[in-house]
Write a protein that binds this DNA or RNA. Structure first.
Length: 554
RNA sequence: GCGCCCAUAGCUCAGUUGGAUAGAGCGCCGGACUUCGAAUCCGUAGGUCGCAGGUUCGAAUCCUGCUGGGCGCGCCA
């Protein structure tokens, strides 16, 4: 719609011979003041300089030349110092209702991503402990982003990368072994950098159930591979369970260990060969280690791929991993990372450029830290000390919908204070319930309508009867929804959806309190029922993108 | 020391590519249920958009410097 207007404005401008050779960039905004119309463009300002004329004169000239569809555009005014304000016809807004009712769940979906494959990788927690709140935020954001991209046409895959190789896994195994031996009454020194959480003791107990005293006196080197496997398997099951209860489903679980084993035993020679094959001339050896020349692509310094002891770094795995992703045919890769990993971005970007992939095809969405507050005091969190608030606890305490909405309402860029007591105590005033209540309320009205002899689906309702200010405001909100979804997806900013939802729900509640939907006036009732049905549809669609339920009763 | 992120009403936060008079929720105070759900609504109050410059017809938004806070700077992940 805006594109049509842009086109005709361009033509008008050219006809009026006021333009430079190139057509101007026509930008639109939605004025907050009704007096300024439904759509406005400051295009005259942009032309003022090159034409050396007053913006207002140009705007007036454009106004006279415009040839717009009278069914859509009611009138055009020049406002302020040179704004072109377009007033659209009521009919244009009203027709959005049958459009939504016909499209149903498809309303708000679009086509920009059609034919392109995108992958969103998120959570990707080490299986060395349960998921904490920070992972929860990443999970909510990643999942919503994936849904958004799918809504605008991308073929989307959700992937969880399992860091099941390397020193952290070994550390977990050694921690479990220590607890296990302690449970048999042995005096053992707990690993210095070991994991102290209670779950480690639980894992040791499970190990004991399964293997009895098998590992009590066995040399460490023989125990560790089995215990690693055993522990990471159990942790991963727990992680999957937590995510499932949070409503997150992954299409793909990708194992680092399996990735590395493609090159056979992970010895230095084979890894070096693989790295050379992949990254070519940017790989070099120095000081006993193997390096990648990432500084050639803007990183602060070069990075180690294979340590002097022959062990691969996490970074080498990541090079292989992202290479593999591209080989799987994705046009666009998005990694959702905790902000504490931001320093890692330049080297991965550098590696991908060394692999020959354009910078735009890869994007890291940083999600800032979550500070959990209990009674106003922050709860210190450290996986190694074992002191942290888990995702499972949060879901238990505040509920899945409220937790998701809270994670998604703020920009990923801003740190989040999550006060458990406040979230629980204020649960009835939580914005998520405000929105859900709107959905439930309409559902209730529609049930009443059924009883009153106004059955749905109102496809042919006389929507031309919708013309009070509140109704037109609602119609405009509804018409805007597809653009909101598209902009939100392409900007990777899921928080815009909760903002939109709160606005829409707010207008709905005001409207509801001022007007009656069901009355003796049959045509008017039909029209209003059609309107609220459309609102309910949009609420449900948008909540669906967030992974939040749209209840018919609360 | 270097790098990234943040700073908007008492609190928590929005503010779309730079646009017209910067918004909402919570909290305070005062109102609205014999009628479709009061988990709602209506009204009042609340601001040097951290500070200082700059770019622009126009800046909360872009640039530079500064202040304050978070995070990172390993042959850890």
């Amino acid at each position: 719609m805006t594109e049509d207007l842009r086109q005709s404005l361009r033509q008008a401008a050219e006809a009026g011979e006021v333009l430079p050779v190139e057509g101007p960039e026509v930008s639109w905004e939605y004025p907050s003041e009704p007096d300024f119309g439904d759509l406005a463009t400051p295009v005259a300002f942009a032309l003022a300089r090159s034409l050396r004329r007053k913006p207002r004169d140009i705007a007036e000239l454009l106004q006279r030349c415009l040839d717009l569809d009278p069914r859509v555009v009611d009138r055009v005014e020049v406002g302020g110092a040179g704004y072109l304000n377009l007033f659209l016809t009521k009919g244009f807004w009203q027709q959005v209702v049958p459009e939504i009712l016909r499209a149903g769940q498809r309303y708000g979906r679009s086509q920009v991503g059609v034919g392109k494959r995108a992958q969103v990788e998120f959570v990707s927690a080490n299986p060395t402990g349960p998921l904490h709140v920070g992972h929860g935020r990443g999970a909510a954001v990643g999942d919503a982003l994936a849904s958004l991209l799918a809504a605008v046409g991308f073929d989307v895959e959700r992937e969880f990368y399992i860091n099941d190789a390397g020193t952290q896994i070994e550390m977990l195994a050694r921690s479990v072994l220590a607890r296990y031996r302690q449970s048999w009454g042995r005096e053992v020194v707990f690993p210095e950098e070991g994991y102290h959480g209670e779950y480690v003791t639980d894992l040791a107990a499970r190990l004991r159930e399964r293997y009895g005293e098998k590992f009590v006196d066995l040399p460490e080197q023989e125990c560790l591979p089995v215990i690693s496997e055993f522990s990471t398997h159990l942790m991963l099951e727990e992680i999957k369970g937590d995510l499932d209860r949070f409503g997150i489903r992954f299409d793909s679980w990708f194992s680092e260990k399996a990735l590395l084993s493609r090159w056979g035993p992970t010895d230095r020679t084979r890894l070096l060969e693989a790295a050379r094959n992949l990254l070519g001339r940017y790989v070099y050896e120095a000081e006993g280690a193997v390096w990648l020349g990432t500084s050639a692509f803007g990183d602060d310094k070069d990075r180690v791929l294979i340590r002097a002891n022959g062990e691969p770094t996490y970074f080498l795995s990541d090079c292989f991993y992202h290479r593999d992703k591209f080989e799987r045919g994705f046009d666009r890769l998005i990694d959702v990372w905790g902000a504490d990993h931001h320093g890692y971005i330049p080297r991965v970007e550098a590696a991908l450029q060394a692999l020959g992939h354009p910078a735009e095809s890869f994007h890291v969405l940083l999600v800032q830290m979550v500070t959990v507050l209990r009674g106003g005091a922050s709860v210190p969190m450290s996986k190694r000390s074992g002191e942290f608030v888990t995702l499972a606890e949060v879901v238990q305490e505040v509920g899945r919908d409220a937790a998701r909405f809270t994670f998604l309402t703020r920009r990923s860029d801003s740190p989040l204070d999550f006060d458990l007591e406040v979230a629980t105590a204020q649960s009835l005033e939580n914005p998520v319930y405000y929105v859900q209540y709107g959905h439930a309320r309409i559902s209730s009205v529609l049930r009443e309508a059924e009883k009153a002899g106004y059955p749905g689906p109102y496809l042919d309702a006389p929507v031309e009867l919708l013309d009070v200010g509140e109704e037109l405001g609602l119609l405009k909100q509804l018409a805007l929804y597809p653009e909101v979804v598209e902009a939100t997806a392409l900007a990777y900013e899921p928080h815009r959806i909760p903002v939109y939802l709160q606005n829409l729900a707010g207008e709905l509640h005001s409207y509801y309190n001022k007007y009656r939907i069901i009355s003796a006036d049959r045509p008017l009732s039909q029209a209003r029922l059609a309107l609220v049905s459309a609102i309910r549809m949009v609420l449900a669609n948008a909540l669906g993108l967030l992974g939040v339920a749209a209840p018919e009763r609360m």
